[in-house]
C-alpha cells in the first residue's frame, strides 16, 4: 500500500486514474480505517486529500454554502451560517458516531461509503444538494441523490472524486430536520431515518416539501408521495398520518442484526412525521 498526499486536484485525479489496483480516498478516514482493520479492503493506494485547496473550507455561494469534502462534522457544527440555513443537514451529519468520530468524519465520506443508513444523506437529498466531482475529464456537478447506486456502490467513475457539496439558498420561511432511530442514544447505525425539508407561505401552509428516508431500502429514498401528503397543508394530524403511511408504503428494508423489516417500515413513517413537525416549527410554522 502507498500513501500519497497530493497538493492539487489535478495530481489527485492523476494518481487515482493511474492506479491499476484498489485505490481509496482518505479524508476523515472513519470508514476507510475500519475497513482496513477488518481486512475488508486492502488498498494499493490511499490518496489523502486534506492538503487540496479549499477542501476544508465552508464558503458562501449564491446564497447557499459550498462545503469542502474534508470538512469534519465538528467544524460544520460550529458554522453558524450553515446551521441556521440547513439545520437538518447539519444535525444528520452530527449524529454520525461519537465526538471523536465527529472530529474526523466528513459528509462526503459518509455519502461515498454508499450505505443506505448513512445519516447525512437523507438530509442532503431532501435539500437537493449537489456534489462537485473532479475527474480525468474535468469537473462536473451531480445531484447527491444520483451518487448512491446500491449498498456500498456509488456512481463515480474511475479517477473521480467529490471535492465539495453545495447546499442551495432557501426562502425565509423554510427549514429542515433529520431524525433517525437507534437502539441506544448514541454510537449506533441508523435502523430507520427520515430527513424532511419544507417551505412555508406567509400563513404557515407548506408550499414545498422533500421527504427522504434512510436505512429502509438499498439506497436512500426520496418519497414524493409522502411530500405530496403535506404540501398544501399546515401539517394537521390527518396529513401527517397520510405522510407516515406513504413513507411506510415505499419501504423495502432488510432484516438484520440492527432491525427487522417490520420495525424499519413502521418507524420510518413515525420518524418522517416527527421530523416534519420539527422542520415545520423551525420554518416558523405552528401546529
Amino acid at each position: 500500500m502507498r500513501y500519497e498526499k497530493p497538493e492539487n486536484v489535478a495530481d489527485a485525479v492523476k494518481l487515482l486514474h493511474a492506479e491499476t489496483g484498489v485505490a481509496r480516498i482518505l479524508a476523515g478516514g472513519t470508514d476507510v480505517l475500519v475497513q482496513l482493520k477488518a481486512g475488508m479492503v486492502e488498498p494499493d493506494l490511499i490518496v489523502d486529500i486534506k492538503d487540496l485547496d479549499g477542501i476544508k473550507d465552508i464558503t458562501p455561494e449564491d446564497g447557499g454554502y459550498r462545503i469542502g469534502a474534508a470538512v469534519s462534522g465538528a467544524r460544520l457544527g460550529e458554522h453558524a451560517g450553515v446551521t441556521a440555513l440547513w439545520p437538518g443537514v447539519v444535525e444528520g451529519f452530527e449524529l454520525i458516531g461519537s465526538t471523536q468520530v465527529q472530529g474526523r468524519a466528513t459528509m462526503v465520506g459518509n455519502l461515498c461509503n454508499g450505505s443506505p443508513a448513512a445519516d447525512s444523506v437523507p438530509g442532503l437529498i431532501a435539500a437537493n444538494a449537489v456534489a462537485r466531482i473532479a475527474g480525468p475529464d474535468g469537473t462536473r456537478d451531480c445531484a447527491v441523490i444520483d451518487i448512491p447506486v446500491s449498498p456500498g456502490k456509488i456512481s463515480l467513475a474511475k479517477g473521480e472524486f467529490i471535492t465539495s457539496v453545495f447546499l442551495p439558498k432557501r426562502p425565509e420561511r423554510a427549514s429542515d430536520a433529520y431524525l433517525r432511530f437507534i437502539p441506544r442514544t448514541e454510537m449506533d447505525i441508523a435502523v430507520a431515518a427520515a430527513g424532511v425539508s419544507l417551505e412555508l407561505d406567509a400563513d404557515g401552509t407548506c408550499v414545498a416539501a422533500c421527504v427522504a428516508l434512510g436505512a429502509v431500502a438499498p439506497t436512500v429514498l426520496l418519497v414524493d408521495a409522502a411530500a405530496d401528503c403535506i404540501i398544501g397543508t399546515k401539517l394537521d394530524d390527518a396529513s401527517l398520518k397520510a405522510m407516515a403511511s406513504a413513507c411506510s408504503d415505499v419501504c423495502n428494508p432488510i432484516d438484520d442484526r440492527r432491525g427487522t423489516i417490520e420495525f424499519r417500515t413502521q418507524t420510518a413513517g413515525v420518524l418522517a412525521k416527527r421530523a416534519a413537525l420539527i422542520a415545520y416549527e423551525r420554518a416558523g410554522g405552528r401546529t
Binding site: Y3, L33, D48, Q100, G103
Partner: peptide, 27 residues
C-alpha cells in the same frame, strides 16, 4: 476495539478530539 467504537485510544490532533485508531500514523 480498533474501530472507533470505544474511545479508549482518544487523543487530540490539532486540538480536535479523535480516536487514534482511526488516524493513520502518516497523517
Amino acid at each position: 476495539c480498533g474501530t472507533g467504537d470505544c474511545g479508549a485510544c482518544s487523543v487530540t490532533v490539532d486540538g480536535r478530539l479523535v480516536c487514534s485508531c482511526l488516524v493513520l500514523g502518516a497523517e
